[in-house]
Nucleic acid binder design. Structure first.
Length: 1090
RNA sequence: GGGCUGGUAGCUCAGCUGGUCAGAGCACACGCUUGAUAAGCGUGGGGUCGCAGGUUCAAAUCCUGCCCGGCCCA
């Protein structure tokens, strides 16, 4: 999309230093060599072009004294005679930046010479073009000492704030400082009495080092907390840890195995003590890692689910469910690992491909409403033949079409029998016929599932110990995706099965023991392991004549995340919290979701859908490391003992001794006087860890004067819809009738640069420790804030490099501000009304950004804020405001209004940028703050966001400035063309003619335009004058024309503007009027005055 | 397989409820500066807005299907 009215002057083509042919010398270089033999010969050599000899790479290398850059050694990197490129490649590898600079220097030298050889000329249109003198004076004069004389009279930026962050080195020192000045305590004191903001920490698991996802989570929390704090809240933050649970237990067991000890022989209390020590250790490690990220919080007052007080309150929360009737004991199939001999939590299950034996089995119909069904058999399909001993029903879909067929012919080896009548879902008939090897057949009729109501079948192993009736039951979960349209129901081995059985009062046979083998009472299969049951079961079915077909299927199947072994559904007695019923937890939870703010809003749907469809909450685990479900069951009634006094006793003892007391003390201590322990069964199941973390609001927030209940915000990864958000909601709704949070923020997951999930096997992981060591924590924080964290976040080497670049710009902006503020005194300050428009525009921008930052602090929606701050630093400040104001800041008298206004604005910029950046770049902001306000115990983190006066907003100036910058683009474009043509170098060598539409003529005066465009002058014209130079326009800025002109006069040795008056001051012949005044005024640069 | 969600320049992101947007910053290329200098300024080249259909006078923006990715569930 070329916008330029004129692409390039012919000079451009001639002088552009395009890379020469890969030969020894390009045409340009040859021409130069002819003109300046001696000098070029040297340059030639320095470019590494002179030595074409290859070196033996194996030979030890040593720079010869004559080879002052050591370039000779680099010769070995050359390829195909292109020594130039080989040289560059090496430099680039060593230091990318110096590479670029080095090359530029070489080019310029060559180009200046070229120009001598190519002027004058006539352009293709026949017009004579610039018979311009060389823009650069001969080298001898530029080295003049007079120039240096005035350098000391210029206010150059002075600051202790280094250009390079060296964050890995500097950050730890700042952490120490914050520690030393007791920053956290002072923050709390300073914000006492302010409105509270409570972000309640979701506890990470105290196991292993933190990873990039944990880092993201904590950084986000920290930014939000700090921003709230600086926006005027009391944002206390108490981090916490999740300590109980299987993974730690597993690690301890591993240690036992490694030591050759039998864990079953170890006393449960000793085992728990080791788990406790393990968790304690990792809490310490993770705390240190979180703090290194710059996360501020009450680390000394952290919470842990294994604290005695926490354990006591968790037991008390279970007591609440006990007392309000929601807790009940049921027998429900849970995912069970025969290897670990335990039920697994949902989160402990992973799905992998697994090859299962599939069977189609006849269930002969005993009785049915329709006559023609009575001689038929229902065909079921299952991938778990071992569940057939537990079968007690068959489910059908009421709206499914079923075909009643008569088999006529069968293929060889088929288990089907000609003449038999089978019932199969119509859509699945072809599949079944094929699998069963049925050839000819007749569809006797097609009936709807609901016509099957009341049908009773025989168990396929009838006559072998399975004499009970098997009813056909309707169920919505039956589909015609796969199978036969009939689902065999084993209430002890499936969730749907169990639910259906419950509704129809089916028995729940227990057929499989903890180790995965059939129990002794299971006819025909006692002692057989279910993984090896396919053959015996099929054999029995075959004998019974009920097996119709057998096959294999690869499908996703649940496995243990620890042992990777396949799991089974197994019925065990478990404790549940009723979701519906008298406590109406589901209803309350759904209402609570509506009353909660979700960021992003999609989270609301997700949580709602899950709560709406979830079954009762199974909270018992048959493990050791956790809080016991500390209740008693009355042996006579089988009912749990619901006695508030007992619950209180348990809570009181746990608070003192921890939940170990459940094992160490006799039951009578809990039951109290008046109850005979012999009448009660003590429950030693432990509680689901999700129940524990779901109770953090109870033991961290409730009744804590430093915090508040409910929390303002819960903030976790989007997986916690099923986890912490979910369990906390159920727990609080069941006990307190509302959500423990007012708002929920979810962030996405960290994926690699291609958007794929991180995994050790893919080798695409990024660890926070590595990032900190290489770039620093501020870069990691910057990465978080530059990403859209409501979705997945990508990270990798390239992305981190980019973040480091963004950081560099921010840092240099701060550095320049600090440099410009050197020695700033309150007396210099200029009121808004006296400021030039340019300054007022910057303040307007600050007002806009202030609104943006405060908005983000309020809404937690930070995406884009950092990008805007960065764009402000890069585009508005560095490329525009700073570039323009360098002249005034460096060269004006110290008392000039313009300079003072600029410094006043720099002061505001410093205050705003350091405080706005403080929640994000906690280290750098502090460094920039202290560079300005050195202090023993000061900190930017003790500040609040500056109050921005409303009058800073000025839409009029904003609009005007937008137009000015548009027009400025035409000028810079014109200058660029001239620069490319070799007509000018620095923009101060130009003083173009500007033709503006009438509407724009009042924007600025000529000096104003020169200032904005950084030229030595601007003249206006009503129409483009008939010049020998082509006018310059931009298509997207119609009506604005620029006619380039070189500035007339001499270059002022102090401010480098080219002005006609230079040379008129006898005492300083090299100075312009302004600089003469400055130098002779006595209010010179601070350095000179001091 | 189901639910939710995403796929805009090499990268990070803007583009609200369809018609001056195909944009910004970074990176890259080229040039300038050498008094922000392991910095700074300017100019420029990059995208058939995942793919394929459809609705419409008009789609990055609406619908359908597909492909790819993520979280959760089975």
């Amino acid at each position: 999309m070329p916008r330029r009215d004129e692409r390039a002057s012919p000079l451009l083509a001639l002088s552009r230093p395009r890379r020469p042919a890969r030969g020894r010398l390009g045409g340009r270089a040859q021409a130069v060599a002819r003109a300046r033999p001696h000098r070029e010969a040297r340059a030639h050599r320095a470019d590494g072009l002179g030595d074409g000899g290859e070196r033996d790479p194996a030979r030890p290398r040593r720079a010869a004294p004559a080879d002052r850059h050591g370039l000779r050694d680099l010769g070995r990197h050359r390829r195909g005679g292109d020594g130039d490129r080989g040289h560059d490649a090496v430099r680039r590898a060593r230091h990318p930046r110096s590479h670029r600079r080095h090359r530029r220097h070489r080019r310029r030298r060559g180009r200046a010479e070229t120009r001598l050889l190519t002027r004058p000329f006539i352009d293709p249109s026949g017009r004579r073009r610039y018979p311009t003198p060389s823009p650069r004076e001969p080298r001898a004069r530029t080295m003049s000492d007079t120039r240096r004389d005035y350098r000391d009279t210029v206010f150059l930026p002075t600051t202790t704030f280094p250009m390079r962050g060296e964050l890995p080195k500097r950050e730890p020192a700042l952490l120490e400082r914050w520690e030393r000045i007791d920053l956290w305590r002072r923050l709390r004191e300073a914000s006492a009495g302010r409105p509270k903001f409570v972000l309640h920490d979701g506890p990470p698991y105290a196991n292993g080092h933190i990873h990039i996802g944990t880092a993201l989570n904590k950084i986000l929390k920290d930014v939000i907390n700090r921003a709230k704090q600086m926006a005027g809240y009391d944002a206390n933050y108490v981090p916490g840890w999740d300590c109980h649970g299987l993974p730690i237990e597993w690690r301890i067991e591993e240690q036992y195995r490694a030591a050759g000890r039998d864990k079953d022989a170890v006393d449960v209390l000793a085992f728990r003590a080791e788990c406790r020590a393990y968790a304690e250790h990792w809490m310490g490690v993770q705390a240190a890692e979180f703090r290194r990220l710059g996360v501020a919080g009450d680390w000394a007052g952290r919470y842990a689910t294994m604290d005695f007080r926490s354990e006591a309150i968790i037991a008390g929360e279970i007591g609440r469910f006990l007392l309000n009737g929601a807790l009940y004991r049921g027998a429900k199939p849970v995912l069970w690992s025969p290897v670990e001999k335990t039920a697994l939590a949902d989160a402990e299950v992973e799905y992998h491909d697994h090859t299962s034996t599939t069977v189609r089995v006849r269930f002969p119909i005993l009785s049915a409403p329709a006559e023609d069904l009575r001689e038929a058999a229902v065909v079921i399909w299952t991938t778990t033949p071992w569940t057939l001993p537990g079968n007690r029903a068959v489910a059908y879909g009421e709206d499914i079409d079923y075909a009643l067929i008569v088999v006529e012919t069968v293929s060889e080896g088929s288990l089907a029998r000609p003449g038999e009548h089978l019932l199969v879902a119509l859509p699945l008939l072809p599949d079944t016929l094929k699998e069963a090897g049925i050839g000819q057949h007749v569809v006797r009729r097609v009936l709807k599932g609901r016509e099957l109501a009341g049908t009773i079948c025989a168990h396929p192993l009838r006559g072998r110990g399975y004499e009970f009736d098997v009813p056909l039951l309707p169920a919505a979960f039956v589909t015609t995706d796969q199978g036969t349209g009939f689902v065999h129901i084993a209430p002890g081995h499936g969730e749907d099965d169990w639910e259906l059985g419950r509704r129809h009062g089916l028995p729940v046979p227990e057929t499989v023991g903890p180790d995965g083998t059939f129990l002794p009472h299971v006819a025909g299969f006692a002692g057989v392991h279910v993984y090896k049951a396919a053959d015996p079961v099929c054999a029995a079915l075959t004998q019974a004549g009920t097996l119709l077909s057998r096959s294999k299927l690869v499908h996703a199947y649940p496995h243990s995340w620890r042992s990777k072994a396949p799991l089974i559904f197994r019925t065990t007695p478990q404790w549940f919290i009723r979701i519906d019923g008298a406590t109406a937890i589901r209803t309350k939870a759904l209402a609570a979701i509506e009353a909660t703010r979700f960021v992003p809003p999609q989270g609301q749907n997700r949580l709602r859908a899950m709560i709406a469809s979830r079954p009762d909450w199974c909270i018992s685990r048959q493990r050791a490391w956790g809080v016991p479900i500390a209740i008693f069951v009355d042996r006579r009634t089988g009912e749990p003992l619901r006695d508030p006094a007992v619950v209180q006793r348990i809570v009181a003892i746990f608070a003192q001794e921890g939940s170990d007391a459940w094992w160490t003390r006799p039951a009578s201590d809990f039951l109290g006087p008046g109850r005979d322990p012999a009448d009660y069964e003590q429950v030693f199941d432990i509680v689901d860890v999700w129940f524990e973390s779901g109770s953090t609001h109870a033991f961290v927030l409730e009744g804590n004067p430093a915090l508040a209940w409910p929390a303002d915000l819960y903030l976790e990864g989007s997986d916690q819809h099923r986890g912490w958000f979910h369990s906390s909601l159920l727990e609080a709704c069941g006990t307190r009738g509302r959500a423990p949070y007012r708002a929920v923020l979810t962030h996405g997951f960290v994926v690699d640069e291609q958007g794929r999930k991180m995994s050790k096997s893919l080798g695409n992981t990024v660890s926070p420790q590595e990032v900190i060591a290489e770039y620093g924590a501020d870069i990691l924080r910057l990465w978080v804030m530059a990403s859209d964290y409501t979705e997945d976040l990508r990270i990798g080497p390239e992305i981190l490099k980019q973040q480091a670049e963004l950081y560099r710009r921010i840092r240099n902006t701060l550095r320049w501000i600090l440099g410009g503020l050197d020695g700033f005194a309150e007396a210099e300050r200029v009121p808004l009304a006296d400021m030039p428009d340019l300054e007022r525009w910057v303040l307007h921008r600050l007002a806009e950004l202030d609104a943006r930052v405060r908005e983000a602090a309020e809404s937690f929606a930070w995406t884009g804020v950092f990008a805007e701050l960065h764009a402000f630093c890069a585009a508005d400040l560095s490329a525009f405001y700073f570039d323009i104001r360098k002249d005034a800041l460096y060269c004006d008298r110290a008392d000039s209004l313009r300079r003072r206004a600029c410094r006043t604005v720099l002061d505001h910029l410093h205050r705003c940028l350091t405080t706005w950046l403080a929640p994000l770049l906690v280290f750098t902001a502090e460094e920039a703050w202290l560079a300005r306000f050195p202090s023993e115990d000061g900190s930017v983190h003790l500040e609040t966001f500056p109050a921005i006066p409303p009058e800073w907003r000025n839409e009029t100036i904003a609009q005007r400035m937008a137009r000015i910058r548009e027009i400025r683009r035409v000028v810079t474009g014109a200058l660029e063309r001239e620069r490319a043509a070799g007509a000018i170098g620095a923009s101060l060598q130009a003083a173009p003619i500007l033709v503006l539409p009438a509407a724009d003529r009042s924007l600025l005066d000529a000096d104003g335009w020169a200032e904005i465009c950084i030229t030595s002058g601007i003249t206006f014209a009503d129409t483009p004058p008939d010049a020998d130079v082509a006018p310059f326009t931009l298509d997207d800025v119609p009506g604005v024309t620029v006619i380039p002109r070189r500035a007339a006069g001499e270059k002022c040795l102090r401010c480098w503007k080219v002005l006609p008056e230079v040379g008129t001051h006898a005492d300083h012949p090299g100075l312009c009027d302004r600089c003469h005044d400055a130098v002779t005024s006595g209010v010179l640069a601070r350095r000179a005055a001091a």
